[in-house]
Structures are given as structure tokens and as C-alpha cells.
Computed example of a mutant assay.
Amino acid sequence: MASDLPSDPRFFVLEANAGGVHDTQFDRVEPINRGNAPHCPKCGDPIGMKEWLPPYRVTLELYGKDLGDFADGAGGNSFLLSERMAGAFRTEGLTGLLGFAPVEVVGVRRKRKGSNPVAVPRYFAVTPCLGHAAVDEARSRIRRSGPVTCPECLSSGMDSVHGFALDVGTWQGEDVFRPRGKQGSILSSERFAEFVKQHGFTNVKLIPTEEYVWDPLRKGPAASP
């Protein structure tokens, strides 16, 4: 007999679809102005990179055949959404993204033979909020270089991740956010995943958190909890 109990919500790591048909990245163009980095209100440690401030000027790098609705860039907390995706996000009442500042695209570098964008859409710079949702260490396979010492930000050195989970009771319903204990990743809700699917937004890769692997030093997974 099937259980009548509701299942826990699922979460996804949001990334650009590298190598895909709409693989799009961006570089910031001078002058690049930056504000302060966010810090944990309890321990004072930095929990993110410095804020990107106006003017928002970028060069797009097209690795696919045509420009995507989502574009990521190195060295910051922000990413770009096409006007189509940004408008739908706000119209449908999704939450967790801040800013929505228009971006000036000063050029497109075609990185792949045969790429030929028909038109360059308008893009908007957005920043995912720092959510209250926390990594559930007992249900995650995270290898850390040291113990977690702050109960607020849960930050510590991280060597590898071979799947992780959130403490659902700490999640406040945001659709896109950075979680406590893994602020370097952008997470999305099931509602956001369905939103992307329904509209066919491009250059979006959504990896279930339980399947997410990050192991740059090839240290392998931590012992099972």
C-alpha cells in the first residue's frame, strides 16, 4: 500500500549546460566595480564573493550554436538571464533572485565553428539570495578538510562532494538560492525545475543534489553517514 505521507521536496544544483547547443558564458568588461563580500553575521567569515556593481557590461562567449537563456561567468555570485526568462520568472512569482539589472552586451565571441546567433537577446544580471536552508550533514557525503565550527554559516574547507541533502525544515521556500554549508552552489526548487521545462529555457542544467559530484582533487567520497 502506497504511503499517504508527502515526500520531501527535491532540490537541484543549477549550472550552465557546458558543451550543449546553447552553451553561453560571459566576461565582465571594464570598468568592473565591486562592492563588499557577504559575511556570516555570527562568525564574520566571508560566505560569498564581492558584489558586482554597475555598470553591467559584458562580452558573451558562445561555445554552442546559439545564445542561451542562462549565462554564467567566472569570478562572481551573479549570472545572466535572457529577457524572456527574467520576465517569466517575475511574472510567475518565483523567488530567490535579486537585482534584475539590464546588461549592456558589447560583443559576442564565437568559440565554436558554425555558431551563428540570429540575434542577441537582452540580458539581465541577477544574484541568487543567501538562503536559510542548511546542508544536512548526516544525509550528505561531503568530505571536509576540517570540522564545521559555526552553527550559522556551516562553512569549512570542502574537499569533495558525492551527493548531498538539505535539512528541509530550514528551507524557507525560495526557488533559487545558495544554501548554508555550501554557499558556492546555486540550488533550485522543484518548482523552478518545472518552470524551466515548461518554457524550454536553454543552457540550463539541473542536477539533483543527491547525484551531484564535485571532486577536483579526486579524493573520493566521505564515509557513508
Rank of each mutant, 00 (worst) to 15 (best):
E15A: 14
A16D: 10
N17F: 13
A18N: 14
G20L: 09
V21G: 00
D23T: 13
D23C: 09
Q25K: 14
D27F: 03
R28L: 15
R28P: 03
V29R: 07
E30L: 10
E30C: 02
P31T: 13
I32T: 09
R34L: 12
P38Y: 05
H39D: 07
H39V: 15
H39Q: 13
H39C: 14
C40E: 06
G44K: 12
D45F: 07
D45G: 01
D45V: 14
G48N: 04
G48V: 11
M49C: 07
M49K: 14
E51V: 12
Y56A: 06
Y56N: 09
R57W: 04
R57G: 00
R57T: 05
R57E: 04
T59H: 15
T59L: 13
L60S: 06
L62G: 09
G64P: 03
K65T: 10
L67W: 05
D69I: 01
F70N: 05
F70C: 09
A71D: 08
A71S: 13
A74S: 15
A74Q: 11
N77I: 14
N77W: 11
S78Y: 07
F79N: 00
F79T: 06
F79Y: 12
L81D: 04
S82I: 07
M85H: 03
M85A: 12
A86C: 10
A86V: 00
F89N: 06
F89D: 08
F89L: 09
T91M: 13
G93I: 03
G93Q: 08
G93H: 07
G93P: 08
L94T: 06
G96Y: 06
G96K: 04
L97K: 09
L97D: 03
L97E: 04
G99H: 03
F100E: 02
A101L: 01
V103Y: 02
V105T: 11
G107Y: 02
R110P: 00
R112E: 13
V118M: 07
R122C: 01
R122W: 01
Y123A: 06
A125K: 02
